[in-house]
């Protein structure tokens, strides 16, 4: 069943690099990551590639396969014609460290800027009561494995590194939505305003809902429809509601 697959892999570091061609044995049922591992074990022992679970659960092995952001552990070789050259490159939105490994620290910086869950006052551990239908909305977002493919594909930062300062990307806007929809989050009761912060601190306005993030999500989370658009609606409700606007102006 095996055949010689044609792999083109980006090799290099932050200063320079190039695409190199390899022929690698491919067995039935294998995924791109299997071939990268075989390359490592047989010909390129220093090929840098991140991976952990090899089952689509940890989100470590993100890269671009023929230009499309994918988990290499979930990309079957059978997707491609045996003669086709399969090109594997690092995620373009983040600076390369070496080969397929890039510096994803941007994401961890943004994660820290989202205020954490605020536990409700007066409820002791064990006293939390929530209905399944009420937790499901946030649960969908908590399926996120932080592969950062949505961040990689988002054109707001993909071709405009200068936007990274003001824009947290779909992953962390979705995190804001998740907390906003958490049935017991007390942030608003303590004077916080997550939708407003998503606009101000996290740059929600820069998103023009092209749904690229949803398209590449390996967990099939409906990021745009279920997180970003509702968040935008909440911002709009607050900003353009004449009564709320009046109060806000007074506060300001």
């Amino acid at each position: 069943m095996g055949y010689q697959a044609r792999l083109r892999v980006w090799r290099g570091d932050s200063e320079s690099g190039e695409l190199r061609d390899y022929e690698v044995e491919a067995e039935e049922g294998e995924v791109v990551l299997d071939l990268l591992h075989r390359l490592q074990a047989t010909r390129c022992p220093d090929l840098a590639v991140r991976w952990n679970c090899k089952a689509g659960k940890c989100g470590s092995c993100s890269a671009e396969v023929n230009g499309r952001p994918r988990l290499t552990c979930m990309t079957r070789m059978s997707l491609f014609d045996p003669d086709e050259v399969v090109t594997v490159t690092p995620m373009r939105t983040f600076p390369v460290i070496k080969d397929l490994v890039c510096d994803v620290s941007y994401n961890y910086v943004k994660a820290r800027e989202v205020p954490a869950f605020t536990p409700p006052e007066g409820l002791e551990p064990g006293e939390y009561r929530m209905q399944q239908r009420d937790v499901e909305r946030s649960q969908e977002f908590r399926k996120c494995i932080e592969c950062f493919l949505c961040q990689d594909t988002c054109h707001v930062i993909r071709d405009h590194a200068e936007n990274k300062e003001a824009f947290s990307g779909p992953r962390f806007l979705m995190r804001v939505a998740e907390l906003e929809m958490h049935p017991l989050d007390d942030y608003a009761e303590r004077g916080g305003d997550r939708p407003e912060e998503s606009r101000g601190e996290h740059g929600l306005g820069m998103c023009n809902i092209t749904k690229c993030c949803t398209d590449v999500c390996p967990e099939h989370i409906r990021i745009t429809d279920n997180a970003l658009i509702p968040l935008k609606e909440r911002v709009a409700d607050r900003r353009y509601d004449p009564i709320l606007r009046f109060f806000r102006r007074k506060k300001e």
């Binding site: 536990p119 551990p125 064990g126 009561r129 209905q131 958490h182």
Partner: peptide, 17 residues
């Protein structure tokens, strides 16, 4: 239970536990 105070969202029983 402590995890719920950190923000965890487990599946629920009909009583909300």
């Amino acid at each position: 239970w402590e995890l719920e105070t950190y923000g965890a969202l487990f599946d629920r029983t009909p009583e909300g536990k």
